[in-house]
Design a protein around this nucleic acid. Sequence first.
DNA 1: TTTAATGGTGTAATTTTCACACACTATCTT
DNA 2: AAGATAGTGTGTGAAAATTACACCATTAAA
Lengths: 231, 231
Amino acid sequence: MEIKLPTFDSVFSIDCVIFGFEAGELKILLIERNEEPFKDWLALPGYIVEQDESIDDAAERILYELTGLRDMHMQQFHTFGEVNRHPQGRVITVAYYALIRINGQKELRPITQYARKAFWHPVNELPKLAFDHSEIFKTAFNKIRRRLHYQPIAFELLPEKFTLTQLQSLYEAVENKKLDKRNFRKKMLSYGFLKELDEKQKGVSYRAAKLYKFDRRKYAKIFHNDMNIDK
Amino acid sequence: MEIKLPTFDSVFSIDCVIFGFEAGELKILLIERNEEPFKDWLALPGYIVEQDESIDDAAERILYELTGLRDMHMQQFHTFGEVNRHPQGRVITVAYYALIRINGQKELRPITQYARKAFWHPVNELPKLAFDHSEIFKTAFNKIRRRLHYQPIAFELLPEKFTLTQLQSLYEAVENKKLDKRNFRKKMLSYGFLKELDEKQKGVSYRAAKLYKFDRRKYAKIFHNDMNIDK
DNA sequence: TTTAATGGTGTAATTTTCACACACTATCTT
DNA sequence: AAGATAGTGTGTGAAAATTACACCATTAAA
């Protein structure tokens, strides 16, 4: 049986690619759609922008309604405007990404009925997603892979207190290659924006590692206006 | 006398920031508006996207209609979606940039009546522009300033055959600082994607400089996967 | 006490970046 | 034809950054 769907004219929407890091793996947030078209498919959290909200506000609201996550600091990264990207009409979508700490997040629970559930999925072996969301994801992943090198985005994915090994394994996951431990540490510490804490890791069954914190103020001082241009 | 204007609901538009390089100066293309709102103001070339064209296609078409320029290779760089950025209604605009060779361009002549004329204006000392176009320009300028370092965009601004001094002065204009001639040449040539021609500059009243060409094929070979990561 | 697992550390070789100055050549002027 | 002008073209040494590389230390569990 074919389902008859309403059509509409020009609509803006927002789609969100939310990255998290857990168990040495990079993950993104997906929802299971509970609405046609693409009912039951997996998709990026996304919905339609209202008349009286800026697109940045819309992004925050939509992510909240679909996943229960709030106060995310999202960055717009690309707008997708092919004519037939949405089967019901002309929908141009502005895509945002965010990087967040998975641990310490409350349970994910959609507020609206448009999503049946929301969950984390490793970026390797993603299934086919609704609409052009696979392409949107790919674009986002390329962006953050590059930005990792000249913006302090790694620290948004890690817990507030982290070990150098955790930091390194995040870089390794994003770049998909092994790095030398001594050189990595030497370089990271040489920047001078990591604050060594008195605390150590707890509950591990091996030598506990020192914990560090990212010092945003020092970072800003060091790379003031101009983050390092070609690093 | 106040002019009564129609209002509208959600509309997408495109705005273009077209950079060119001439006489050692970086310039952008502006139009003089011939339509309310902001009649008689200077603005970036921009207009409304049609239902049945992708935003990339719309960008090409709109630029052509307002300036007579065609087949530009434009890159989307940001979408501006504040609620009140347009006085007549909700307009979200996708901004594109392009880099072109000013010389060798035909005269600029708007096709539609929405622009009275189109012309090049140095990026230093820009006047206040219509809508939020000053902000759009600023965002574009920051983007290309950064991209100059990891994408071969300089060669789109120069004539096909150029001297190393011209190339250097372009970098100096964008970065707004002097570079060392010897180091600049050494580094540029070391990349191996500049092809030295047998020709020399003509018509200059001093020792003529060698001409070079950008070898796109060699460039692609050298920086294979890595060059166009976010194109 | 042994084992398993990870934390933590330094040095030398190589490569890259940077600072720096002067002679050459084509044209124009007188 | 001599000189002025204006931009072209070239090399070296010092400093900084990057890379390659291996072993002992600490903790908890067995």
